[in-house]
Design a protein around this nucleic acid. Sequence first.
DNA 1: GCTTTTCACTTAACACTGTCAAGTGGCTGA
DNA 2: TCAGCCACTTGACAGTGTTAAGTGAAAAGC
Lengths: 217, 217
Amino acid sequence: MTTSAIRSASLARRERQKAETRQAILDAARELFVAEGVEATTMRAIAAKIGYTPTAIYHHFRDKDALIVELCLADFTALGHAMFKIGRIEDPIERLRRLAMAYTDFALDNQSQYRFMFMTSYQQQLKDAAGNMMPMPDEDAYQFLLQTVQEGIDKQLYRPEHTDAVELAQMFWGGIHGIVALWFTHCDDPHITFRDPRQVVRALCNCVLCGAVRNPN
Amino acid sequence: MTTSAIRSASLARRERQKAETRQAILDAARELFVAEGVEATTMRAIAAKIGYTPTAIYHHFRDKDALIVELCLADFTALGHAMFKIGRIEDPIERLRRLAMAYTDFALDNQSQYRFMFMTSYQQQLKDAAGNMMPMPDEDAYQFLLQTVQEGIDKQLYRPEHTDAVELAQMFWGGIHGIVALWFTHCDDPHITFRDPRQVVRALCNCVLCGAVRNPN
DNA sequence: GCTTTTCACTTAACACTGTCAAGTGGCTGA
DNA sequence: TCAGCCACTTGACAGTGTTAAGTGAAAAGC
């Protein structure tokens, strides 16, 4: 082994170790965020979970928000994957239905992540962080939705009064988001009766599409 | 003036003064909550705003959450009033439309209050507090919605497949909530194009009702 | 009219948070 | 063998919500 080979090997090991503890921090943070909530989990608790001192975290992340944003960004790509897994379905209307259900499934299966992604405003910090990372994968999911709606408009599947893809997309997304968000925040409220959110989302799709599509079958 | 009259008069004044500073605390808290956000406003700031010591607040409210819950409860009655102002409109479908727009207006005009009422989970504390107060006025607004939907079902205005008022109500409420909530959290996101939420809510009502009603006109 | 009680409010502190400046110690490279 | 690096620790700071122990002026009692 040459000296340069040794150098690069030890350098690589060092970097790998650093990456490992970085990942350990992220894993511990995620687990605690999910279990206790974000506000309730402290830097000290995260550090204790992985056997470090609180300030060690600050060698890997600028501050608590940076930690949050990094996890959030990872979740956005996970959502993107879940959406694209639907793949090519010819009929844009049917594709929209599948999209809605996949989105709902993701939200319900990852409640605490979803709360961060879409129920709090981290725009500024996400934007700052996005500069260093990929071009905002959430955008992809949104673009996928927008494109699916636009395709329906282009193929004249919607009634003539619906010509604005942006408006339709916002309506779909908002509608579904509201059903799951309301479920998250209020399902324990004894004054309100709730049906299974998946069922309600399905009903919303039926109603909206039945009302917006030219030839509902 | 008899001695008992003097006693009751001074007692009344004392209680009035206490009520006044209590209200002053609530007003200051509301103003700061709206301006700075709830997490960001401190007990010390609220106290400073009305010229008191932070601990003075604790003679009027158990803790910060109690302060929040009290303001929240007041907002629920405000929403209830806004809903009932719609009054008696014969057609349950048209009434539902008006309901949706009144709800949307309330949300957009009282963003920070709305965030508290429907975008965070204060169920437990609200429930605890509700024991001492009126029977949860929010319930009224929800019951109003539910009843309006049920009336439409009873009059056979909806298509035969729609028989569950709870599901329809959840769909309407959720749909509208999602459009305004998404607007609140993401309207600054440069990757997403947004239309005016009132316009989108109107479009949602059109689509849903067109799809759910037996004879859309 | 004097004393006693009440009670709205203050003072001083506590435990806890996120965060930082100044170390420390073991591995790395020469 | 030695200097340097750097992941990590120590000890602290300002700020948070909250509380136990006062304080002093107004009210109540005689």
